[in-house]
Simulated scan of single mutants.
Amino acid sequence: MSGNKKYPLFPRLRFPEFQDAPAWDTEKLGDLITTISPPSKLQSSSYLRKGKYPIIDQSQDFICGWTDDDDAVITCSLPLIVFGDHTCALKFVNQSFAQGADGIKILKAKSNTSIEYLFHSLNHRPLVMEDYKRHFSTLKERVVAFPDIESGEQQKIASCLSSLNDLIAAETQKLDTLATHKKSLMQQLFPCEGETVPRLRFPEFRNLGEWKEKSISDFGEIITGSTPSTAHPEFYGGGIPFVSPADISDLRWVSDTKTTLSALGFEKTRPIKANSVLFVCIGSTIGKVTQNVRDCATNQQINSVIPNSEHSGRFVYYILSLNAERIAKLAGIQAVPIINKTQFSAVRLLAPEFSEQDRIANCLSSLDDFIAAQSQKIDVLMIHKKGLMEQLFPVMSEVG
């Protein structure tokens, strides 16, 4: 059998009305599109915070600024795809916009493909950024599979995936709203700068007077992490979490870690009890905060607070989260930001008695549970979308 034989190309999942439709065609992306030149490219110094038209560039943010300059607006018919030549960011744009600076390609579909279908097809197998170089020359050589545009199958696929994207966007907006509400609530439940009582206080604590100033070291034992020697592979690969800054997300808890330790490796570390508070004190992500679900170890970039009996671990997490930005500034401006253990331990913060700490923590923990559930809902939708795309688009290895 010839290795160059070309087989008919079909997706594994097809809408019922297209079950008997012909096989799909393939073309290089460069043969399916034309590129649009903008009337001008706006420099970042001219960006406005508000304006008539959004400015779109190659950053991951959909909109990077605004302009009132009518002469800078792309006049080509919409929608269009914006591709970040350096960043590989893909954006589906269905509103009048201006191009920001350099580094993007504006793509318009030719008559045999729908631009919305092309957008989803490219997102199915996204181009991966390789250092900071131009990638469009690679992208336009990519082979794209597509059904006959006259059949309506392209539009059906695009509509299905766009609806799912809209659902994900709506759920993400709910998550953002919860996060914003939490931030606002924390600002009310903790004293503002220069004040000694919070503006919002639970009724049973309103007559207890001022909160007391304490150092972080008063909250419990502070442990700086350490890394077992990588020259001993037997120290690694067990089931014990080894937390680094990369394992810490915007959610409260860390459970699974990229690196794990064996029991032997764990003996070479400074163990951190479950429900402690982990604070990143070295590196570009300085100020990240989390709590560990189970006993773990951390690398040397992290200082952990093991709460004592007078302080709620959950409260310590929330007060450090609220003050993370202020604490991070202690590192100053240097190539590798660092807050040493002495500096971190000496940070002064206001705290109430344990019962009020626990009441505040209960309130915020309930909100965190909602946030975690909403985040998980989005994760499930993203997994569903990925699986659906695998079914709706043919396996490209079958292209002859």
Results as ranks from 00 to 15, higher is better:
182 K>Q: 15
182 K>D: 07
184 S>Y: 06
185 L>F: 02
187 Q>A: 12
189 L>H: 05
189 L>C: 04
190 F>L: 15
190 F>T: 09
191 P>I: 13
191 P>G: 13
192 C>G: 13
193 E>W: 01
194 G>D: 04
195 E>Q: 14
195 E>P: 00
195 E>I: 03
195 E>N: 12
195 E>R: 14
196 T>H: 13
197 V>F: 14
200 L>F: 08
200 L>C: 01
202 F>R: 03
203 P>N: 02
204 E>R: 12
204 E>N: 04
204 E>P: 01
205 F>W: 04
206 R>E: 15
206 R>Y: 03
207 N>V: 07
207 N>R: 12
208 L>G: 01
208 L>F: 01
208 L>H: 13
208 L>K: 12
209 G>R: 12
209 G>T: 11
210 E>R: 09
210 E>Q: 12
210 E>K: 14
212 K>Y: 02
212 K>C: 04
213 E>I: 03
214 K>N: 10
215 S>K: 15
216 I>P: 02
218 D>G: 04
220 G>P: 03
220 G>W: 03
221 E>C: 11
222 I>W: 10
223 I>G: 08
224 T>H: 01
225 G>S: 06
225 G>C: 07
225 G>Y: 05
225 G>V: 08
226 S>N: 13
229 S>Y: 04
233 P>D: 11
233 P>K: 15
233 P>S: 15
236 Y>K: 05
237 G>C: 02
237 G>F: 05
239 G>S: 11
239 G>F: 07
239 G>E: 06
239 G>A: 05
240 I>T: 08
241 P>D: 09
241 P>E: 07
242 F>V: 08
242 F>I: 11
243 V>T: 04
244 S>W: 06
245 P>N: 07
248 I>C: 02
248 I>Y: 06
249 S>H: 10
250 D>M: 13
251 L>R: 10
251 L>M: 00
252 R>N: 04
252 R>G: 13
252 R>C: 07
253 W>Q: 00
253 W>T: 00
253 W>D: 00
254 V>R: 02
254 V>T: 08
255 S>M: 00
256 D>Q: 06
256 D>Y: 00
256 D>E: 12
257 T>W: 09
258 K>T: 14
258 K>G: 08
258 K>M: 06
258 K>Q: 10
259 T>S: 00
259 T>D: 01
260 T>Y: 01
260 T>C: 09
261 L>M: 05
261 L>I: 06
261 L>G: 07
261 L>F: 08
262 S>Q: 01
264 L>Y: 10
264 L>N: 08
265 G>Y: 02
268 K>G: 02
268 K>W: 03
269 T>L: 06
269 T>F: 11
270 R>C: 05
270 R>L: 07
271 P>V: 03
272 I>N: 03
273 K>L: 13
274 A>V: 13
275 N>G: 01
275 N>Q: 10
276 S>I: 09
277 V>A: 09
278 L>I: 06
278 L>Q: 12
278 L>V: 03
278 L>H: 05
278 L>S: 11
279 F>D: 02
280 V>C: 14
280 V>Q: 09
280 V>I: 12
281 C>R: 11
282 I>Y: 11
284 S>P: 06
284 S>L: 13
284 S>M: 14
287 G>P: 04
288 K>M: 05
288 K>N: 07
290 T>W: 02
291 Q>D: 00
292 N>Q: 04
293 V>T: 14
294 R>S: 13
295 D>T: 13
